[in-house]
Design a protein around this nucleic acid. Structure first.
Lengths: 143, 143
DNA sequence: TCACAAAACTGTAATTATTATAATAATGAA
DNA sequence: TTCATTATTATAATAATTACAGTTTTGTGA
């Protein structure tokens, strides 16, 4: 259950060398399950790592995502979000506050795709939009 | 089955006044089921409507989408796509060529969301990524 | 029909997210 | 140590979207 050991294991399993920057991004994602954007990750890490470049955050996230170590979430058209939890779950986005929450789903594996014989699937994303508890009463057609 | 009449009906049902521009965008979407981007819609319509502004295309798509007349697809982080087909179906994106295809799905209504008592759902999107027939053999880790 | 207000459209500028590039720094093997 | 490879960094460029302000169109009441 050691987070550090888990990080090393996941990076290694994906064939990614564990540099300081990569470990920092990975640790951030594993301890901040808010599906952060690049900007959020960078601005939260930057104070403790003054030499960190935003390009490195981009590069690292792309690398981790390509290797299947983390998950990319494109729930809004605006910017990408990232998630260290690659287990099967869905995401919910509040159209008012913009926050993204995890949803536990059942039966997703029973969904049948009919016209896909000639396609090769690699990932699946299930997104819900709506209003969260705080916002559902206030909502005045923002977004 | 008259497309024109259908457009008027759908716009009216959503409380959207049928201007030339809105009809043109709506008609384009209904006759080009390729989930086009704003740029594609604009550049295809522009020759026949030289005064059309891309801002109008943006405004129109946002309006139609807000009123539930069309669907916004955020399957890639890069740009938004639009779909006049608002019936329940999923989308597939080829990671090599970038094309987006419709998928007919069964059993999506049987998916249960567990921790959502306090949330108000408005839309649901199911995306698959992978490689299409043409690209699945060629694929050399693009994207 | 005219006057006027509201709505729709347009073009440009600004913003924001992301990618490309090139230079520097770190790593690791011979 | 030397050298090649890889990783990181800063800056510039690109691309998508939004903001804004001016113009045109539409519709309504006198």
């Amino acid at each position: 259950m050691n987070v550090q050991a888990d990080i090393f294991g996941r990076l290694q399993a994906g064939g990614v060398k564990p540099s300081m920057q990569r470990i920092a991004v990975m640790e951030y994602l594993m301890t901040h399950c808010i599906h952060p954007t690049v900007d959020k990750i960078y601005s939260d890490l930057a104070p403790a790592m003054p030499t960190l470049s935003k390009t490195t955050v981009y590069n690292t996230l792309k690398l981790l995502s390509d290797r299947g170590i983390i998950r990319t979430i494109s729930i809004d058209g605006k910017n990408l979000r990232y998630d260290a939890d690659i287990s099967r779950h869905a995401h919910f986005r509040c159209k008012r506050c913009g926050n993204v929450y995890d949803l536990q789903v059942e039966g997703l594996d029973k969904v049948k795709v009919n016209n896909a014989a000639h396609l090769l699937f690699t990932e699946c994303q299930l997104y819900y939009n709506g209003f969260c508890e705080k916002c559902k009463n206030i909502r005045d057609s923002i977004n």
